[in-house]
Design a protein around this nucleic acid. Sequence first.
DNA 1: ACAAGGATGGACT
DNA 2: GTCCATCCTTGTA
Length: 190
Amino acid sequence: MAAMPVDLQRFFDRDVVLVARQLLGARIFVDGVGGIITETEAYHPSEPASHAHRGPTARNAAMFLGPGHVYIYRIYGLHWCLNFVCSDAAAVLIRAIEPTAGISTMIARRRLSAPRELCSGPGKLCDAMGLSKLEDGRSLADPPFAFHPAAAEAPVVVGPRIGITRAADLPWRFGIAGSAFLSRSFPRPP
DNA sequence: ACAAGGATGGACT
DNA sequence: GTCCATCCTTGTA
């Protein structure tokens, strides 16, 4: 296993809400299949929606491996969800990606051809990129992963996180404004 | 030992 | 909009 490159370590070893914002526009590939991150959510152990809120367990062990690792868990007994670990066992859930590479592979895995449906949800993008428990705890610096930070900051829309019951008021969901590749639309500001 | 329920997606009305 | 598949982790006894 290669050492975590300094720049990757630095990118993720910061406040999880800042990282979640700055991940918009970054690119992630798994064996060359992937694209541009368009939607994220931040989870911090200090709030009860985080899987690390009650400390280390067998499931969340990857959250305690340090910044730049991948945490993948199963949800509702059938889907996988991809997270990037930050400082303090916090993590960013990747909710949507705009596919740019390996699209024919994604179409084969998803058995759908509409580009907008390939990675527009946390479970969908794991299916499209072939991610499962096997990749849980691996480093983003090592194969099969390739990660490239965003070149420029994208215009951001903000809203409450999806599908949670606790700490549901925190505005910790972020998306690229105007993107056609979000999991669902953001609520209009009041 | 056991019951509850979840950071979802797809099918359907 | 509603319904629910499916299973593993977790809290509680």
